[in-house]
Amino acid sequence: MAPVSSTQGALTRWRIEHASQLNDLRRGIYRFTRNWLSVIGLLIVVVLVIIAITAPGWVPYPDDIAGAVDPANRMKPPSAEHVFGTDDYGRDVFSRTMWATRTSLVVGIIILVVAISIGVVLGALAGYFGGWVNQVIMRATDIMLTFPGIFLALAISAVLGRGIEIAMLALSITWWPGYCRLVEAQMLKIREEDFVAGAKAVGASNLRIIFRHILPNLLTGIIVKASMDFGFAVLAIASLSFIGVGVQPPDPDWGSMISQGRRFIPSGWWYSTFPGLFMFVTVLGFNLLGDGLRDLLDPNATVR
């Protein structure tokens, strides 16, 4: 065998040691790419993430983000200078729509991270321990589910005031019950598995069993639900911004842009249309990705 340098040797060794993981990965990529809809979903999501990360570097009119006003260029239709046209303050709709991608994605991530953290921990405890723990947590969950999310968010911002932070808080609070139920239901099933008894038999504590043994097995369901939910979280935050309690002007947001633009719909169609289009594509992209991930990670759910 030819002598290899030490770094090459380490890489080769790693590849041999993790051959089975690499094989699983390869098989996964193959299965995922066989469904072109999920590939489109993934592409949309990747493009959106790139836009969100790099937007500050290349948007043509960065001053318009902070709320610069240019009355001379009010409501100009799309042109070479302003590809998405300008709004009622003469700001570049393209720059603001791109920038709003950042807001939407960051807000969506925060909502889901908070909701998943709360929901998964509560659901895991309820499902694992059962009995009165389950009763207390799941009845609280049921109560939370009876509140329509948007209205609860409205009520909370009526008390705490307007603003994106409060809207996020409100949406996180209405979003966790779904994860709680998902995890609880699967927990009830999986805690009877032999390998859980096996973990107990080698002396594992309850916390270790829940977090080390059971939750990793529930991860796929959580990831799939999260990728589906992400689009809806973006929609929800846009809805709140639309009615004026989410992102506050002049910060750009798809929801508030659509809301402000609707007054100009007959003539200035571009004002609402482009943010709306981006929102549509975002929700679509995350849903397609979620579908693809579900087929990939949970073969039992495949319909075909």
Binding site: D194, F195, G198, P216, N217
Partner: peptide, 11 residues
């Protein structure tokens, strides 16, 4: 345990 297909954590 009896069933080695269910008694090992698949992850």
């Amino acid at each position: 345990f009896q069933n080695p297909f269910s008694s090992l954590n698949p992850r």
